[in-house]
Design a protein around this nucleic acid. Structure first.
Lengths: 343, 343
DNA sequence: GTGAAAGCGCTAACAT
DNA sequence: ATGTTAGCGCTTTCAC
């Protein structure tokens, strides 16, 4: 096996001290340009690579950021992670990722791993059934910053990065009402999670403000995936009195539902006006194009990572900005337009 | 700041030596059961956590797997990564991810980072313009296993995990021909990449076998995203003689193209039969449903990670299975059916 | 079954 | 501008 070159090998070869080698390799200002050049070249020639463990051990800093997400399987999560990786990488940080698989138990195990890995900070979107966030206390106690994004816990002291789910849902629902809908169904996920409960509340508030009574059968709660959309469609088709509007809490489920409804002869938006959430590519390709809410996933990843790194490098303190709400807006498209758009 | 507990603290507290503590914490057989119990309990009480860096430094092993991907922004990559993370996590490995952003230069930088991070193994899908894989030599030389998946380099000695792009493309094209298409356009990505060149070759071979001459204007090469699909549609609509069949190298681009074509009055499949690649959710939701090729992304991630870990743990040698070709099949749907399906 | 001690490779305080 | 030196916390060989 290849022998690993250390700074001692370089030092010996160049008749310098290990300290000088170490400094040169880190661009320490007090090192002679020429010396530095010789060192860097020799390092290259000899195939030296720095040993992070020795370095981390010494500095007790890891330059690693942990990311915990419910599940790595959607466009949304991919965009968020992509942005985080980019920001982190540019700042010299590594990202280690783990999935809670929507289980609080697994999430707790993940925090332990992250803890033992000595991450410098944590970016977290919570699992479906996470009921409290005590498992993050050990980080907070040690001053390891934790930032929650998207799926956050309502009652916490950490930084949260979110969109205004309530307002957006309110806007979607109000828009459907303005289009003449009065029997608006809401298809959503687990109401324990802030993102879904807030959207639900926004939906309810809009109904209330329009004096439309809420009916239990107008709420469908499920997995919010393609299959859930098909199941929702089946339920709707079986109703004695179908809704005249549908607000789904994401695009994929809503588009899938719309697909089946149309297949069964339902006209969209004439019979049922529809709106989703996220502005996924699919919302722009299905017919009719799906009214939705723009969810800035990439930007959310960027901001979460940037905020964390700024905090780590001392560039900006974290507590000064406790909640960051990203701008997100209703995008009206054909799927909800019963009334012709104003010119 | 919280003081970090070390094995020395435990040793002192329990009047034992650090060596004994270390052994106990690793279930060393030569340690008295009771002693072990005392140690483990005390570790818990005092909030001890092992220091991976000291341990890694000592053992020169990291339990970390590096993953390099072109870009973390698609359903496909999300599924692959999701599977890898799950397998790795279950086996006690961490995953660190980095994106090449489709640039060979960045990819080379990534390998350096991975190298310095002393990953135990590497899982790689190559960037658009990676022309050689010399930057992986340093891993191979040191016996660090590298496994390529999806986007691989044709001429290499590493394990590759792929699908049969050639055959699948051949099948798609042959299917379109069987539906009566004779002017079949192929929309694809950078032909330097095996996945696209192989699909292209399969397409060409199918034309050849059907005695259909290939025409240059029937090849469109681009980014394969939503926008590329729209641009392709514009080009097609501007042609004096439009194609009667389109085979796109992925679903999103093809679906997006179809959307615009339909909007401009083109009937699918009557005027143009269409087929994509990947079996993304979108292929099942657009109208007409898109004929496509099932690409087992999750399975690919699983196999890549499992193969690597088996190799690392010595469970199975890697060289014994040099290329793994996953099963993937043509899925015929309405978008390509000019002729009624047989009953 | 347990302990003593060396050393993994690096960094940084302190010297010069 | 460069060198000396003392650890960071752990594992492991060798002793007892």
């Amino acid at each position: 096996m290849h022998k690993e070159i250390t700074i001692y090998d370089l030092a010996e070869k160049l008749n310098l001290s290990p300290a000088t080698i170490s400094r040169a390799l880190q661009d320490h200002p007090a090192i002679n340009k020429k010396t530095k050049k010789r060192i860097v070249e020799m390092a290259e020639v000899m195939g030296y690579r720095s040993n992070r463990f020795a370095s981390n051990l010494r500095k007790s800093k890891t330059n690693t950021i942990g990311v915990i997400i419910p599940r790595l399987n959607s466009q949304f999560v991919a965009s968020v992670l992509g942005a985080m990786e980019k920001i982190a990488n540019d700042a010299g940080y590594n990202i280690i990722v783990s999935q809670s698989m929507e289980s609080a138990t697994k999430e707790i195990a993940n925090t332990k791993t992250m803890f033992d890995n000595r991450v410098d900070g944590l970016l977290v979107s919570l699992a479906y059934d996470t009921g409290n966030i005590e498992h993050f206390d050990k980080f907070i106690k040690r001053g390891i910053p934790v930032i929650f994004f998207d799926r956050v816990f309502d009652d916490n002291k950490c930084v949260r990065i979110v969109i205004d789910n309530y307002k957006n849902a309110y806007d979607v629902t109000t828009h459907l009402i303005a289009q003449g809908c009065s029997r608006i169904m809401h298809i959503t996920g687990n109401l324990k999670r802030n993102v879904y409960s807030e959207r639900y509340n926004g939906y309810r508030a809009a109904l209330k403000d329009a004096d439309i009574p809420f009916q239990k059968e107008m709420l469908l709660s499920g997995e919010l995936n393609e299959v859930a959309g098909m199941e929702a469609a089946a339920k709707i088709l079986a109703m004695k009195k179908m809704p005249d509007g549908i607000f789904g809490a994401n695009d994929i489920c809503t588009a899938s539902c719309m697909h089946i409804l149309k297949q069964q002869g339902v006209r969209v938006p004439a019979d049922i006006a529809m709106a989703g959430f996220n502005n996924d590519a699919i919302s722009r390709i299905v017919e009719p194009n799906l009214t939705t809410v723009n969810y800035p996933a990439y930007q959310m990843g960027e901001i979460a990572a940037t905020t964390l790194i700024n905090h780590l490098t001392g560039t900006a303190s974290i507590s000064s900005t406790d909640i960051i709400v990203l701008r997100s807006d209703l995008i009206v498209r054909a799927s909800s337009l019963k009334i012709k758009k104003q010119a």
